[in-house]
Simulated assay, not measured.
Amino acid sequence: MSVHNPNIKKITTHQLQEMKVRKEKISMLTAYDYSMAKILDATGIDILLVGDSASNVMAGNETTLPITLDQMIYHATSVVRAVDRALVVVDLPFGCYQGNSSEALRSTIRIMKESGAHAVKIEGGSEIKESVLRILSAGVPVMGHLGLTPQSIYKFGTYTVRAKEEAEAEKLIEDAKLLQECGCFAVVLEKIPSALAKRVAETLHIPVIGIGAGNHVDGQVLVTHDMLGITKDFKPRFLRRYTDLSGIINDAVVNYINDVKQGDFPNEKESY
């Protein structure tokens, strides 16, 4: 069953802003391929994120760092082909924007031209200000990302909660304000204390979307493969598994194997 408003044909950044104003929560999930994106879009999900988490869930890498711009464009193109309603946001992968705003713009233009996506997401605050401004100057919507920024995992050294100390919390608030002033249409806050996320959401007039940032923000995002139970070994506190697809798929394949081994598949009705 679909849960979306039938009056909304296509989600835009403007509609997300209106959702914040009327206190309607924003739903966001990741997508990396055509088939899954088609299913997700039909449910009425608001935003589909072509996340660099594809590096982990689709390619089996330990971090998000190895995924390339070409690979992100491949995933984004597959998702965009499937989508009628959701806003499609694409992660700028590691190495495509840090310290070089020209590179950031070139990477973004490739994503937009080759995939047809609607916006990009970029990790960091004041240190990437020039890249954000450069991308926005080309007319491309930008979503920010603060808190635990997985592309900086080797700097942090751990995937634990960020901004528990006052100094880091203050910097996060300042960075969030800066991203808003630059012109970002939304900000993702990952794995930070709920009270801090609430402060940010109340301070900003743009939507704030959380992942492990409590319930006092304007929306939530999860990795689809995690919430569907396709991945089994990732169990952070913030994750709610809505089904066990891993188990369902396992049972179906075991039944298929048994039917093939016993000569039960295909039967006469399944033959020509």
Results as ranks from 00 to 15, higher is better:
Ser2Trp: 11
Val3Pro: 06
Asn5Trp: 06
Asn5Cys: 13
Asn5Glu: 11
Asn7Lys: 15
His14Trp: 12
His14Asn: 15
Gln17Glu: 12
Glu18Leu: 15
Met19Ala: 02
Val21Asp: 04
Lys23Phe: 03
Lys23Pro: 01
Lys25Leu: 10
Ser27Lys: 15
Leu29Tyr: 03
Leu29Phe: 05
Ser35Asp: 10
Met36Leu: 08
Lys38Tyr: 04
Leu40Gly: 02
Ala42Thr: 08
Gly51Glu: 11
Gly51Val: 13
Asp52Ile: 08
Ser53Gln: 05
Ala54Met: 13
Met58Asn: 05
Ala59Arg: 13
Asn61Ile: 04
Thr63Asn: 06
Leu65Thr: 03
Pro66Ala: 07
Pro66Arg: 06
Leu69Gly: 09
Leu69His: 09
Asp70Glu: 11
Ile73Tyr: 01
His75Ile: 06
Ala76Arg: 11
Ser78Gly: 14
Ser78Thr: 09
Arg81Tyr: 03
Ala82Leu: 10
Ala82Gly: 09
Asp84Phe: 10
Arg85Trp: 11
Val89Tyr: 09
Val89Cys: 11
Cys96Ala: 09
Gln98Asn: 03
Ser107Glu: 07
Thr108Tyr: 01
Thr108Glu: 00
Ile111Met: 11
Met112Gln: 07
Met112Asn: 09
Lys113Cys: 07
Gly116Glu: 13
His118Cys: 06
Ala119Arg: 03
Val120Lys: 04
Ile122Gly: 04
Ser126Tyr: 14
Ser126His: 15
Lys129Arg: 14
Lys129Gly: 04
Lys129Gln: 12
Leu136Phe: 09
Ser137Asp: 14
Val140Trp: 06
Pro141Met: 03
Pro141Asp: 00
Val142Glu: 00
Met143Phe: 13
His145Ile: 08
Pro150Gln: 01
Phe156Met: 14
Thr158Met: 07
Thr158Val: 12
Val161Trp: 07
Lys164Cys: 15
Glu165Pro: 05
Glu165His: 13
Ala167Arg: 14
Glu168Ala: 10
Asp175Cys: 08
Leu178Gln: 13
Gln180His: 13
Cys182Glu: 03
Cys182Trp: 05
Gly183Lys: 00
Cys184Asn: 04
Cys184Tyr: 02
Phe185Lys: 02
Ile192Asn: 13
Ile192Gln: 14
Pro193His: 10
Ala197Pro: 06
Arg199Phe: 07
Val200Thr: 02
Val200Leu: 03
Glu202Asn: 11
His205Tyr: 15
Pro207Met: 02
Ile209Pro: 12
Ile209Asn: 10
Ile209His: 10
Gly210Val: 00
Gly214Ile: 02
Asn215Met: 13
Gln220Arg: 11
Val221Gln: 01
Leu222Asp: 00
Val223Trp: 00
Thr224Asn: 05
Thr224Met: 03
Thr224Cys: 08
His225Val: 10
Leu228Lys: 04
Leu228Gly: 07
Gly229Lys: 07
Gly229Ser: 08
Lys235Trp: 00
Lys235Pro: 05
Pro236Ile: 03
Arg240Leu: 14
Arg241Trp: 07
Val253Gly: 00
Lys261Met: 06
Gly263Lys: 08
Asp264Met: 12
Pro266Ala: 08
Glu268Lys: 13
Glu268Phe: 14
Lys269Thr: 12
Glu270Arg: 03
